[in-house]
Nucleic acid binder design. Sequence first.
DNA 1: GGGGTGAGTAAAGCACCTTTACTCGCCCCG
DNA 2: CGGGGCGAGTAAAGGTGCTTTACTCACCCC
Lengths: 162, 162
Amino acid sequence: MVRVEREGTDRPPAGELTFLLGMGFQLVVAEFDRRVAEAGYPGLRPLHGMAFQALRGPGATSSELAERLGVTKQAAGQLVKELEQRGYVARRPHPAGGRRRLVVLTDSAERHLEVAGRVIAELEAELALRTGQADLGVLRAELTALVHAMSDGSPPPLRPVW
Amino acid sequence: MVRVEREGTDRPPAGELTFLLGMGFQLVVAEFDRRVAEAGYPGLRPLHGMAFQALRGPGATSSELAERLGVTKQAAGQLVKELEQRGYVARRPHPAGGRRRLVVLTDSAERHLEVAGRVIAELEAELALRTGQADLGVLRAELTALVHAMSDGSPPPLRPVW
DNA sequence: GGGGTGAGTAAAGCACCTTTACTCGCCCCG
DNA sequence: CGGGGCGAGTAAAGGTGCTTTACTCACCCC
């Protein structure tokens, strides 16, 4: 990592793309998590939200969830057990049989998805205002190009970073 | 979190700013770490590079390092002990006396900083090419505005995210 | 010279994940 | 129709990296 030359009144590195990405992501995620917790979901971390996303619609088996989250199936199974105890998912017999169990979202989890969606939309709208952009379309487009350039093909599962 | 409407051949969410930030950061950091390891520094995680950054120049005490990294002083002390054993930092008596010990970088760490700086510059140059941008100035500017809008004042320490 | 302050250290605890090793339902081929 | 084996799921132990709690000790300062 390299510290770039100072420019004007810039205090910290503040020119390094990698640092900027990290700080931006961290700030946005932290604020998102804070607001979701405040809206009635304390103790639900972003990873839980990712799991809800992965289980939307028809649901999935624990192993499918593991693959989508990029963790081992044991970790996914533990996550499912915890979410089941808290009433966010239910396990039903899988139509394909075998040892499979289908994990589906409860209404409670669906409500959380709605709240989280509203929170993140509000947050991004505020950011658009504060940065003076009409929307954040330019940033989105640039980031999309970046992600596409680095992962050409399928984007990676979103996991905790270092 | 909300899944956005499909557009063309887009497969995943791919419109959510938060997701894009996370994926971008994760991809860049992972590739950076991979290349640095390949360049002769296996087992040095990005956090170690952050510590080197924080210790550049006059060095710092363990407690100062802890504050800059956003961890407890115990965690920083443990990190220093590990880096000392591996020859990347040295501990010298602190001019201000007291129980303080000044942690400074060795030549080995300075060389790592040079390598890491070169690696990240190359990586960003390749990204600029692949995304078709002359440089990534637009993205940098947008991200700088975003970070500034969310942290007005001092940027946060860069820590593992969720 | 005795208490306060703050750096550093030690030990235990904890969150979260992986690795290793198994159980067991079903397919399928002989 | 029976047994091998594939793959989902589970169980238990291990490991990493951090925090919390609790202390030691050097110096300042009245």
